[in-house]
């Protein structure tokens, strides 16, 4: 991910009111994770496993924060039970920014299966999501996904495709 894309995501998150972000990094998310860690307006919690981050975000919401979780799609799949039991079941919103590996243009053979499973699992969990690739799509997607998460009391997701991550 280019630094200006990372900066646009951080700025969009802040404009949408997000003040608390849990992350689990990956090569494509590195610049975003570093930028989040350096921003004094955001409490950054690097976690060791993505479902842990879902729990931390849910707890922060109960305490009045506006949380988001940054992870790759492999971490989203790992977190399915946590999202169901901790967020969807009681009605706790968490905005999820999911880096999508294994989509069209993927060169790493190992990522294709996870890539193909990501959207069907989001749909199966009835999680409303937006796919984002172009720079100008970032800000409205973050704003509108956060608005829906807060009003519906449900997690929402932004899927950052290869173009956004590049």
């Amino acid at each position: 991910m280019k630094r200006e894309v990372a900066a646009e995501i951080v700025d969009s998150l802040k404009e949408a009111g997000v003040d608390f972000v849990a992350t689990l990094t990956e090569a494509n998310l590195h610049d975003l994770v570093i930028a989040l860690g350096e921003d004094p307006a955001i409490h950054h919690v690097p976690v060791t496993r993505e479902e842990e981050g879902i729990g931390v975000c849910a707890g922060a919401y109960l305490g009045g924060k506006k949380p988001a979780m940054v992870m790759m799609n492999a971490g989203f799949l790992l977190s399915a039970n946590a999202i169901a039991t901790v967020c969807i079941h009681p009605g706790i919103p968490v905005l999820m920014l999911i880096g999508h590996s294994g989509g069209v243009g993927e060169e790493n053979a190992g990522h294709a299966t996870v890539g193909a499973l990501t959207e069907p699992v989001l749909q199966a969990m009835h999680i409303v999501y937006e796919k984002v690739g172009r720079f100008e799509e970032i800000r409205p997607a973050v704003r509108d996904s956060q608005t829906l998460a807060r009003s519906s009391r449900r997690p929402t997701a932004i899927v950052l495709n290869k173009q956004a991550l590049r």
């Binding site: 608390f20 409490h43 919690v45 976690v47 479902e51 842990e52 981050g53 879902i54 729990g55 931390v56 975000c57 849910a58 707890g59 922060a60 919401y61 109960l62 305490g63 009045g64 924060k65 949380p67 039970n81 946590a82 039991t85 901790v86 079941h89 009681p90």
Partner: peptide, 23 residues
């Protein structure tokens, strides 16, 4: 707050503690 999940009690408590550091 009674969690209906096995495993994330410590993480929920961490998020809550960070959100409300005076409680």
């Amino acid at each position: 707050y009674h969690l209906q999940n096995l495993g994330l009690t410590s993480s929920m408590a961490l998020g809550l503690a960070l959100a409300l550091p005076h409680r």
